[in-house]
Design a protein around this nucleic acid. Sequence first.
DNA 1: CGCATTTCCTGGTAGC
DNA 2: TGCTACCAGGAAATGC
Length: 272
Amino acid sequence: MPELPEVETVRRELEPWLTGRTIRTARREDAPKGPKYAHLEDADGQTIEAVTRRGKWLILPLSGGDELVIHLGMTGIVTPERPGSHHRVTVELEPTGDRDTVYFQDTRRFGRFLVAVQGRYDGLPSLQQLGPEPLSDDFTTAEFLRRLKRSRTPIKQHLMSQKAVAGVGNIYCDEALWATRIHPLARSNRIGRKRADALRQAIVDVLTASIARQGTTLRDYRTVGGDTGGYVDSLKAYGRTGQPCERCDDSVIERIVVGQRSTHFCPKCQRR
DNA sequence: CGCATTTCCTGGTAGC
DNA sequence: TGCTACCAGGAAATGC
């Protein structure tokens, strides 16, 4: 499911394609009116100035001061190929001969593709409350620790909330906790400076390594070029229920549910 | 405010 | 084969 590495992979592909391109029309196809596809028509005539990312959100500043905001949800795909089904948005660019139409396909309708008018993120509370960007200098141990202290919920849930750090979802959460031997049910506010620093580093390392492999494809995720993500072969915890822990002997990865989400960990080396 | 729970949605799959 | 039931989960809405 698209998390930071998958979204960053998409961003890197969109950047050379879309930067400087002018939108002729942006229109909803088989997608509901409402906040998930708000103000799309406002993009008409504006030029895409950059392709940026905040957490799992793609943000494309437009020349008129608006922003095109895209969230891939679970199954969202940005592609130059016309989707055969689940076609949600069409963006026609002023033609240059290089892939003049952008399509948004989203099987399960969890994605969003909208225009934030003049930087107003009303209807996007998550974007407003987003924690620091993990691959930036803002993601310091001191700041991370401060944010971890704000919640008594299990560390797994707090990382998933996007409030302590942006862009970490179910897969990389389980991977970073496995890497640091932190139990997913450990209370966020009980994590000390030393473990917070290790966790911060593990998050950076896991995300960076995954970006290098173009992310993780479990089922639906594809790059703009149609490739699958290779990090699936490097997973140590996520989806490995019943398989041996690669770090300790005589132990297998266990699956529990934390905050309504499946959670994978090694009961032997991840202590509470 | 924090936190828990529910909702959205569809394809894949288990079980009969 | 065909049917039903259930599962996956990011973010928002809802209810304390």
